[in-house]
Design a protein around this nucleic acid. Structure first.
Lengths: 191, 191
DNA sequence: GGGAGCATGTAACGGGTTACATGATTGG
DNA sequence: CCAATCATGTAACCCGTTACATGCTCCC
């Protein structure tokens, strides 16, 4: 037995994960679901990659698809998870070690380079960041509210609750950051 | 003037940023500094990539290098930022828009897939994650303490202070997560 | 003697993105 | 009529990683 052994990339599990929460979805729909759920705590793949992961999953026997007419002339391909797929996904969830979170925090990076920044501009950058987070937070809340209540969405709702608190934390951190850089050259052991 | 226009990848600024905090460093040293500073809020590049970014920076005129003997027979290449480099970096810090933070939170992802997990195992996964974060937090604290005090490290210390609070927040979030999944099927609007 | 740290680099690979191409339907 | 949404896919590209290759020195 020579063949492929290496585990699929996490993105494959993300796509299969969306499928595990629904019965049958098109690539396009998967992308949308990903954007408004998993996207708040794990990078949501580009549409083109959703399609290629779907092909991979099908090749692995983790998903099946069927052609469905959506209107005259137009076809969409609908995917669903197989037994094997759900099994493999559960296997991954339970047995793969939890990798350390990966973070690219551009604002923190810029603060770290604050000695090269115009002080006033630095504060503006924090403000920019706060707006970004606030927009995200609104979306998270909307999503979480949508999923709260239905029994099948318990875990997604829990994850979204986590994300909500996470972004609230981001806001707090930004405020404290502002104090730090405002409070003239601070950064040493606070009061 | 036809030539290259596209901005270098963020990693280039990371490397140049390390250089902007020192006078002259080898690639190897840069990697170490990156690991224990910027690495806590922005992915630290692999050593091989540090070297290739250095070559890029030199080609752009943002850095210069010189050959320095480190012991008989052995040479190391020492890099320093040029005027132009510092200028370009400052330009980036001040004028490039702050991109949204990128997060890959594997634990949250797995919680989101909790319907496929063994409940007991899920709690273990959270515990695994907590250990990871605790280890990171210790390192952040050590780094922050090392940089606190010296005037030139004000901004790095501020950034590390941010990181310290960030990981403390992660710990809190993990606790609440445990409550959520422990407290039977919760996730809806808390008390 | 052997392993860890210092030091630099190449090569292969893959994960993932943007841009491009196409085209129908619906709503303002 | 035009923009947005639905819908799928290809191609180019590059960022970044792991694995490999090499070799010295210091310390146990």
């Amino acid at each position: 037995m020579p063949a492929s052994q290496s585990t699929p990339p996490t993105t494959a599990w993300v796509v299969l994960g969306v499928l595990s929460h629904a019965k049958e979805l098109s690539g396009y729909e998967i992308k949308k679901w990903a954007d408004s759920s998993v996207g708040f705590f794990f990078v949501s793949p580009a549409l083109s990659q959703v399609y290629s992961e779907l092909r991979r999953l099908e090749a692995l026997g983790y998903a099946t698809s069927r052609e469905a007419p959506q209107d005259d002339l137009r076809n969409k391909r609908l995917y669903r998870s197989t037994e094997l797929g759900t099994q493999a996904l559960g296997e991954w969830v339970n047995n793969a070690p939890v990798e350390a979170p990966v973070l690219k925090h551009h604002l923190a990076l810029k603060v770290w380079l604050g000695h090269l920044a115009d002080p006033g501009r630095l504060r503006e950058l924090v403000a920019e960041h706060v707006s970004t987070i606030e927009r995200t937070l609104q979306q998270v809340r909307a999503s979480r509210e949508r999923s709260s209540g239905r029994a099948e969405w318990t875990y997604p709702a829990t994850a979204l609750g986590w994300a909500e608190r996470y972004y609230e934390g981001e806001l707090l951190l930004a405020e404290q950051l502002l104090d730090d850089i405002e409070g003239g050259a601070a950064g040493d052991d606070h009061a």
